[in-house]
Simulated assay, not measured.
Amino acid sequence: MSNKELLQEYSKSIKTLKKECAKAGISDDEFKQMYFESIRDLDDNLVNQNQSFFNKYKFLIVFFIIILFVLFVTYDFKSIYSCFLCNVQEYIYPGLRLLRKISIPFLSLFPSLTDLYQETCLIQNPFFTVVDMDCWPCSSINNIGEVFNPQPVHKLQVAPFIYKTDQPEIDILALKSLYIKNKDIFDKESSKVLTNNKYYQTPQDIFESEILKEYLYIWKFNHFNAARILRQIIPRPKIVPKFGQSTERFIIVDSKHDNFHIPDTECNFAFLLVLSGTRIIELQPAEECKHQCKSFKMELKKSYLLWYNWWYWRPTVPASKSNETFIAHVGSYC
């Protein structure tokens, strides 16, 4: 029964009771006095019930408060916090991975949801270091091996390695054709290209010019629609499991032939796939692990992929005397 029906039923019963009181010789003033006295009695009963409930469990409530106070006073708060983290920490990343898998169908149905994505860090701190960082994963690595039958990353060690993929060559003309074909989406979702690590240009300024200038271009993709279009010409590498690849990708076009750093990725497991050209890649250990881990240098040719963990290694590309344009794709896996 709805609230309106209950009020109507209550009003009807009061009117009936008033008529019966009038037949019994009770005046309207006496009826009103009796009615308000009954309401006051009802309020008093409710107050008494609440007080009796509090009196009944007062001892337990006070005892519980005292126990909590004693625990926080006598026991170290840091120990409680550390114990909580130790028990919860191992469930954080599996939970986030499960959430990522669940969100994929929703993003497919509603791609505009990716517009709500926020950058994890607007400005990076170049002086940030991890105190007492454990460098054992990279301290035992003596060389960078080549893998000939790559398996998904959860079946391989975390050490850096390279392997030749089935990725066909993609030159600047293929990128230009892809942009023109999907111009509306790219202009809306990936409208900024970092040029020479100094300023931004639009993809239209780059691809609609007759001649590609000798610049370093870093084109970042961070939306579902753009990443899905990019996957049409750059399929998911074999080393990356079916679920877990980050939406964030980078296309690097280097016609300047100067040294530059490969951008840090959203996930710590990252890969650098050469789409066109050949360049020397240097893997330098993180600042915290320079005293334990070695640096490596290798030549990465087209269709080759370098897999690494940027938590321990930071790839850089030194200057080159070659005249060919170097194009690479950077992605990551969580």
Rank of each mutant, 00 (worst) to 15 (best):
I211Q: 10
R231V: 00
Y200A: 12
F221V: 03
K213Q: 15
P203I: 05
F207V: 06
K220M: 08
R231H: 07
Y217I: 06
N197P: 04
H223W: 04
L212D: 08
L230W: 00
K220H: 09
W219N: 01
K192Q: 14
R231Y: 09
N222V: 05
D205E: 15
V193T: 05
K192M: 14
I218A: 04
E210I: 10
I211M: 08
N196E: 06
K198N: 14
L194C: 06
P203L: 06
T202M: 05
L194S: 05
Q232F: 06
V193N: 00
V193K: 00
Q201F: 06
L230N: 00
V193I: 15
I218G: 00
Q201Y: 02
K198S: 13
Q204I: 10
Y199S: 11
K192W: 13
Y217E: 09
I211D: 09
I229Y: 06
F207W: 10
I229C: 02
V193W: 00
I206V: 12
F221E: 07
L216H: 08
D205I: 01
K198C: 12
R228T: 14
T202F: 05
E210L: 12
K220T: 03
F224H: 11
T202G: 08
A226F: 01
Y217N: 07
Q232M: 13
W219V: 01
Q204P: 03
W219F: 00
I206E: 03
L216G: 01
S209K: 15
N197F: 09
Q204Y: 08
T195A: 09
Y217R: 05
K198H: 10
L212W: 07
F224P: 01
V193L: 05
P203T: 02
H223D: 13
K213W: 07
I229Q: 05
Q204T: 14
T195Q: 09
R231P: 01
R228W: 08
H223I: 02
F207C: 04
P203H: 03
I206Q: 02
N222G: 12
A226W: 00
I218C: 07
E210Y: 10
R228M: 11
E214I: 07
N222M: 09
P203K: 05
F224T: 09
D205C: 09
A226Q: 02
Q201R: 12
I218N: 04
Y215Q: 15
T195D: 03
